[in-house]
Nucleic acid binder design. Structure first.
Lengths: 143, 143
DNA sequence: CATCCAATTGAAAACGGATTTCAATTTAAT
DNA sequence: ATTAAATTGAAATCCGTTTTCAATTGGATG
């Protein structure tokens, strides 16, 4: 049932900002968390329409932005020109492997790489706020 | 005078594809190489207009795409919604540090990180074709 | 040099995803 | 129930990118 903790975080955020709880937001949150992967606004919108024909694209768009602002989702761009959102795993960070043939997206994490990133940044006088690492290539089943 | 080698590569590419050498292409190539950094189409267009008021945005756009196709330039996206092009240093690859405050872009290269990337990809059955690593943060002079 | 065909150009239109507008509706506090 | 403020959805707008098309240019040929 999605992460209850994530839902709590969103509800707290809404309360804090004086935002209202609506049927649409509940439905969108539920569907977003249950799918979990790297959805574009369009994809999520189409999914939601199957069960909720009256929901509007603009609402999905606005709600995803809310999720991102609240911190329970992150916006990504993988170079196909449209934004994608993924549920953020609260504390943990990860990067992506993307198959250029079938589009499969695999998440990974490597603290050694992160460490080296910090080092490089320090050498150039930067303090890192966030980073983006994407490896594009061909997955096993596509070969 | 830009890299003569780069110009040669572009000329060879044009010859090979049966494309024509035009005044516009020469001017655009010259300006692009002399500026070198991470230019958007718009920025390059405006620069060119200063000395060549009759040049069209579409031509700049198409020529930059030609550069990318030929391999003398690479298209990048740093999340501000517009494409940027940089001259590609033929053999060498590099990644980017981007200051979120002033927009400064610094290039770096770290073979240890690249090695670890290969390793991670292999573990997931991927063979890497290319990658993207960007570190966003705050540069020295902005603190 | 004159001619011709294909490539190129630039202005304007079209495109596509993201975002905003606005009147109607819904929420939730009173 | 009443009311003010937030929300919704359809449609319009925005903005960078890409394409269209008539006019121009490159360069190969006779």
């Amino acid at each position: 049932m999605g992460s209850a903790k994530t839902k709590d975080k969103f509800r707290a955020f809404m309360l804090d900002k004086g935002l209202k709880s609506t049927r649409q937001r509940e439905v969108i949150l539920e569907e977003f968390l249950s799918v979990g992967s790297h959805l574009s606004t369009e994809e999520l919108y189409l999914r939601l329409r199957r069960k909720n024909p009256r929901i509007g694209y603009a609402t999905v768009h606005r709600t995803l932005k809310l999720f991102a602002e609240c911190g329970i989702a992150e916006q990504r761009h993988f170079g196909d020109g449209q934004a994608r959102y993924e549920a953020s795993d609260l504390d943990e960070h990860h990067d992506h492997l993307i198959c250029t043939s079938c589009g499969k997206i695999v998440e990974f994490e490597d603290p050694r790489i992160e460490q080296l990133q910090e080092k490089v940044a320090r050498q150039h006088g930067f303090s890192i706020e966030r980073h983006r690492l994407e490896l594009y290539g061909c997955c096993e089943s596509c070969r």
